[in-house]
Amino acid sequence: MSGNWLEVDLRGIGWWSPAAPDWPSAAALLQEGAAWPGEGAARPAAHVLSPNERRRAPEPVRIACEAAAQACEAAGCAPGELPSVFTSIHGDLGITDAMCAALAMDPATLSPTKFHNSVHNAPAGYWTMATGCREASTSVSAWQGSFAAGLLETLVQCRAEARATLLVSYDIANVGALGAALPESRAYAFALVVAPSGGRRASGRLRARHVTAPAPAPKAPAATSLQPLLRALATRTPACLRLPAGPGTALELELAA
């Protein structure tokens, strides 16, 4: 038993990871056979943020905004006009760690800035502020199925509202005692702009449906579940694949040129 197929045009891709600061460099690594577009240590450019915000913004905000800006540019879309979906398994682990540590020591020392940046929709908040975007924005989470949930939500929104829609999926590496209690996580941000199918500027087509057939076992780090999709996008190869969505459920994807 499955849900309906939802088909959209792929318009633009954005990427950031410590060793691949944009989608072309990530795609090159994947084309060379890399399992994952690299590890390293770097900060994203995040030019979309004002210099002040870029300096102060927490890591999830910087990397999500960087990938989002790339995807919009590749799609030829004005960022301020796109509804958006942000998805992340853990949100800002660094802030949760710092907040919980402060509460355990002395609750009076909790930082007001950390607190307002602790909301799961902080990257969406900074993104919409930076781009002057007043369109609908949703931040979601679905454990190991977070990417699948975000992608499905993006396709549903794109089809239901007949509008190009931005998806941003991100996480950061584990931090602190909280990080030690969670499955391994890896810093990355991946963004897609999708549009109602049949447009002139499509760089590919994507179909998806929610199915109850068994999904591939979730991998650790969870982001590596994206590998087959990233490789297919990088090599522009048609593909049928399944992403883990939840217990006993998957998102079935078909990618066509």
């Binding site: 909301v119 949703t138 929610h210 459920t249």
Partner: peptide
């Protein structure tokens, strides 16, 4: 963040899309 979604999905026994919205 998906903690309540994971719990409620088991309790209700739904198998359609399941997600937690945190805005």
């Amino acid at each position: 963040p998906h903690s309540p979604g994971l719990f409620l999905q088991q309790v209700f026994g739904t198998r359609g899309p399941c997600l937690t919205v945190a805005t």
